[in-house]
Amino acid sequence: MHLDGNLQHTTWTTPEAAEAAGVSPDVIYQWKRRGKLTPVNRTGRPRYRAMDVLHAEAATRQRAGRTHAAA
């Protein structure tokens, strides 16, 4: 996955967000249920702002005491 462009305006589907964050799609769904991620569209398949996904991943990593992203 390429992280080029403006991450404020880039949106990802659930599988794309999971790949970028280095987690499974189930984790993206958990983040959504827990209010850590909010889809930017309300109809059809959810899409998430790239920057929001990366912030959610970093916050989760920090809470878990990891200093680097999962491979």
Rank of each mutant, 00 (worst) to 15 (best):
P39C: 10
S24R: 08
L3Y: 12
K36I: 08
H2N: 12
E19H: 07
A17Q: 09
Q8Y: 14
K36F: 09
L3C: 11
G5R: 15
H2L: 15
Q8T: 10
P15C: 08
R63G: 01
K32S: 03
A71H: 05
R49L: 04
L37P: 03
H2K: 14
R47C: 06
G5Q: 14
L3E: 04
K32R: 10
W31H: 03
A50C: 10
R63V: 12
Y48S: 04
V23H: 03
P39A: 13
P25M: 11
G44I: 05
W12R: 07
H68K: 07
A21R: 00
W31S: 04
T11I: 12
Y29W: 12
R34V: 02
Q30Y: 11
A21G: 01
N41C: 12
G5P: 12
E19D: 13
P46M: 06
R63E: 09
V40L: 07
T43S: 12
T38G: 05
A18L: 04
G44T: 08
T60Q: 09
V27F: 00
Q8V: 05
P39F: 01
A17G: 14
T14L: 10
A56W: 01
P25Y: 02
H9L: 14
Y29G: 02
Q8R: 14
S24Q: 13
D26S: 09
E16A: 11
